[in-house]
Design a protein around this nucleic acid. Sequence first.
DNA 1: CTTTTAAATAAACACCATTTAATAATAGTT
DNA 2: AACTATTATTAAATGGTGTTTATTTAAAAG
Lengths: 217, 217
Amino acid sequence: MGRRGEHSKSEIECMALEAAEAIIEEEGYEGLSARKVASAIGYTVGSLYFVFRNLDELIQRINGRTLDQLYAVQVDALTHCRLPQQCVMELATVYIDFAAQHPHRWRMIFEHQPRDDGLSLEIYREKVERLYELVEKQLKALAARPDEEIALAARALWNGVHGIAIMTIARYPYMEGKLSGHQLSTHLINQYLTGFRTTEINNVITRTMGRTIDYPK
Amino acid sequence: MGRRGEHSKSEIECMALEAAEAIIEEEGYEGLSARKVASAIGYTVGSLYFVFRNLDELIQRINGRTLDQLYAVQVDALTHCRLPQQCVMELATVYIDFAAQHPHRWRMIFEHQPRDDGLSLEIYREKVERLYELVEKQLKALAARPDEEIALAARALWNGVHGIAIMTIARYPYMEGKLSGHQLSTHLINQYLTGFRTTEINNVITRTMGRTIDYPK
DNA sequence: CTTTTAAATAAACACCATTTAATAATAGTT
DNA sequence: AACTATTATTAAATGGTGTTTATTTAAAAG
């Protein structure tokens, strides 16, 4: 009934974010609810709506924090490598490991559908962009190519690693258990980089192989 | 109140599946609810639970149908190509197009978390396995490799295409709009296949490049 | 024609996100 | 010190959700 000053607004905000993250880690983000978060921090739902506009905003805040954590481990990974190809490998390793260690929070980044448009979506793009840039830097060290091609390459390759991470942590048994995410990403990256390094005229081929071309019967 | 024989059990089942699919296409699978489906087919919720054990089962049925549709368009795509590399391209094109045309149903396949374990999950794996096999067939035609390597290659490459498809239909603006999914997948596949075709000793390199190796400072 | 059985419903339960109005405690002002 | 305004907090209400229950209705079986 209206006690005040126990915790500041930003303290409650922080407590709520941490409590929510704990719930998500344990029960999956499907199991997240305003009531659970509120009772976990010793408040009622109303107080949550005093701090966050709605659950959507809380989730976006958590996703932002998770993306920051992911970026941090990615940056840290680069201290363990020298050669560019080795660094790309290292980035993929920690990417997949992060997804495996925090599957629910990681999935929430990409699966949660924001119904609250045009708020902080731009921040998201920047945080993801940073991740691509780490890859771009390695690719630049690996082969001299125009910037647009580096951008294309980093996104193509990293979306690929992303897909492997998804399949690795999928609850459905899409993959017979034999193949690990690391095996898959190592293979994908090695083959890809082999092509990337050796094929100077690859862009030409790419265009030439457009699907409108008639092949002989 | 209890009129009988208007529709058979399997008719209701079919009507429910189609109604649910329509709702998902329009509102996203977050907007799916038992009550909406029931009222769409002119019944009450109870009747749905007379036909399906729960919403989970209905969703899994829909996912199965969607996977069948996806397989069908993939198989059909192979009639438009001759060369293996061109066929892989074609498969990727229709995969990404399918995801773009049915984003909600497609996402539901991979994002819905089944809480109802051990039911028909095996069926899922088979339906996904079929998709990989289409790719495997093309890779076999492209380079003579042991079966395990073909399996690894198909899964690595296709998880990659899958990741691109995900990012392409993501609601968040992860990617600056310039790059299309087709550009990305074309690039990924071309680079990958260049590596795949040319590097006979690639497996050796892969192992040799394990992250335990010390590189010179 | 009565009994059994199956189909369908209405209503209930326990949740959920979000909004509303009410209340309690503080801060500012006289 | 008393009064007001403001802010923090809650309880309760609204309308939604999945799922279960008991109940009714219609058809089939005897």
